[in-house]
Amino acid sequence: MALQLNLLHEEILEQRQRQRDPLKIGMLVLAGCGAILFLYYAWNAYRTLEIKTRLSHVTADWKKIEPEVTKAQKRATELTNIINATRVLDDYIDNRFFWGPFLEKLSRCVPPNAQLTNLEGVVLDEDKGGGISVTIDGSTAAREPRSAAEDLRQMLLEQLGKTYFDVKVEFKTLEDMETVANVGGTNVPMSHFTLGITFNSSKSKPAATPAPTRAKKRSSDENS
């Protein structure tokens, strides 16, 4: 067998070693990774820019409608306030006590042999239970003046009970007077009385309604 001598062995080995240089390979890998990372960054930057463009569009849209929205919100608040104020005002108006019908009823209850000299009526505060309190001073002249006063009390109780609720008519005082009245040429004794009347104008408080229109309308005959 013939002996072969490779004189370039060392040179080839050196060349191979240069090719397999880990630093070189590392640098190549690093460059590759760097390129990938750069591309990834560029992609992310592009997406970010795209999102920022979207934001500027959305902001422009918002700026366009913002004045209208502010106006609408202001108007809505104003309308809500008007609706609420009207509702409360209507409640106030509807819950008033009407003295006209009461005075009419009272005048119809007083017989010819009785005279009212003083009337004090007051609408009690809601905090104190509400209702109406009336004090009437007067005198009656009849054979039985106390009985005439009692008739007046009964009449008031009956007539007021037709319209109002929880009606109470009570004597605070009822006393004979020393003076006599001349009725139809006859002298008849007199009595002086003080009546305390309490009642409620409505059975129960009406529930607050959200409707803006007047919830309750009083009949014309009640007010006239």
Partner: peptide, 18 residues
């Protein structure tokens, strides 16, 4: 008084003395 109460809805009589 009845006329007043009808004409002035924002008015409420709280006390009356005669």
């Amino acid at each position: 008084i009845a006329d007043l109460e009808n004409a002035e809805p924002l008015l409420s009589i709280t006390k009356l003395s005669v």
